[in-house]
């Protein structure tokens, strides 16, 4: 599976919690770096689908690139 890196404008625990719940619904492997506002996702899904999912949280999301 491909590893992707995203910038997600998370400011607090609640925000990273929301991202965690949204990604849990997708059952992808991920980890969240709150201080640096980064989300790393390992999945076979393409970046666009992951981007759309992250955007559902209502936060600013940018796709940085494959890791």
């Amino acid at each position: 599976p491909q590893k992707h890196e995203f910038y997600v404008d998370m400011t607090c625990e609640g925000c990273s919690g929301a991202v965690t719940r949204v990604l849990n619904k997708l059952d992808v492997k991920f980890d969240i770096d709150l201080p640096n506002k980064k989300v790393f996702i390992e999945s076979d899904k393409d970046a666009d689908e992951l981007l759309e999912t992250l955007k559902k949280t209502g936060k600013t999301v940018n796709y940085i690139g494959p890791k």
Partner: peptide, 15 residues
């Protein structure tokens, strides 16, 4: 459940 700060509140209200 799950809101911890003002930015979550603002986020939901806006979205």
């Amino acid at each position: 459940e799950g809101m911890t700060c003002g930015s979550c509140v603002q986020n939901i209200e806006q979205h």
